[in-house]
């Protein structure tokens, strides 16, 4: 089977103003390669500053990599023109950590969902609104909230809305950059379940970026560990968490606070 997306030796450097006008180079992503197959999830874990979010922006065509290629459906999206990249962004959608800041606060839920459909200009406003309503149902939101503003929704509802908006253009790949981190534990589980449902219903492919190892292991078919812009280890979740090969991974795994909660009903007092 062909991978949906194949990343080859991707590099992204930023220039930063050093002391006395000297220019320093920061290699945010430093030679990263991986493939993601259709209908699977690649989880990318790493500490802050390891280059996860820069990688996400490159994959979503929102940053131009300095070197390397990103093959998506047989096309190297790095080499595409601005117009070609714009078309590609419909197929690769990005979901951010904090839905409170990634949704327009002055728009209603229906307007937020209709906007991506109106951009290409081939749909009437009525039809776009009708389609927007059907998306709400898909992510488990009631259509009663269509006229509400994002501020009137709970954190979990806002993240569902962000997912619904990302799905309106029927993308092939969703990049989730810390998409669960800002949510409370009880909503994290709800959204994780929703992501799994959508994967089986729509055949979605995910790149799930997180610093939460347990959630990455739960959602990922594979885990890649990033450090200083490189992938230092990749493999099956149980393998990575049980027998980490790299010292940095081992440190990360041992730092996770863990306790065994009773999974069954607790005994009556």
């Amino acid at each position: 089977m062909q991978p949906l997306i194949r990343v080859e030796s991707l590099v992204k450097t930023y220039e930063k103003q050093g002391l006395a006008g000297r220019r320093d180079e920061v290699r945010a992503v430093d030679g990263v390669s991986f493939s993601v197959f259709p209908r699977t999830t690649l989880a990318i874990v790493g500490e802050s500053g390891s280059g996860k979010s820069t990688l996400a922006l490159c994959l979503a065509c929102l940053e131009n990599p300095t070197a390397g290629s990103i093959w998506f459906e047989g096309v190297d999206i790095v080499k595409l023109s601005e117009k070609g990249q714009r078309a590609m962004r419909r197929k690769i959608q990005l979901i951010f950590q904090d839905p409170a800041t990634s949704l327009n606060p002055r728009w209603s839920v229906a307007e937020i969902l209709a906007e991506p459909l109106l951009l290409p200009g081939n749909l009437s406003r009525d039809e776009a609104t009708w389609r927007a309503h059907s998306r709400l149902d898909q992510v488990g939101l009631s259509s009663e909230i269509a006229e509400k503003a994002p501020a009137e929704l709970s954190g979990g509802q806002r993240q569902r809305l962000a997912i619904a908006r990302a799905l309106t253009l029927e993308p092939k790949l969703l990049i989730l950059d810390e998409a669960l981190s800002a949510l409370d534990c009880s909503f994290q589980a709800q959204i994780a379940n929703l992501l799994q449902d959508l994967q089986s219903a729509l055949g979605m492919t995910y790149v799930f970026i997180s610093h939460d190892l347990a959630m990455a292991a739960h959602l990922g078919d594979d885990i890649a560990v990033m450090n200083c812009g490189r992938i230092i280890e990749q493999g099956r979740p149980a393998e990575i968490l049980k027998n980490p090969k790299n010292d940095i991974t081992r440190n990360m795994v041992s730092a996770v606070p863990r306790m065994e909660f009773p999974r069954q009903q607790a005994p009556e007092p």
Partner: peptide
């Protein structure tokens, strides 16, 4: 109880077969 159970389990030997399982949200 529900809050504790909604956390993703730490993977062990059997866990990968159970990965498709839903979290107790």
């Amino acid at each position: 109880r529900a809050l504790f159970q909604s956390a993703p389990p730490w993977p062990d030997e059997e866990a990968h077969a159970a990965r498709a399982q839903k979290l107790a949200a």
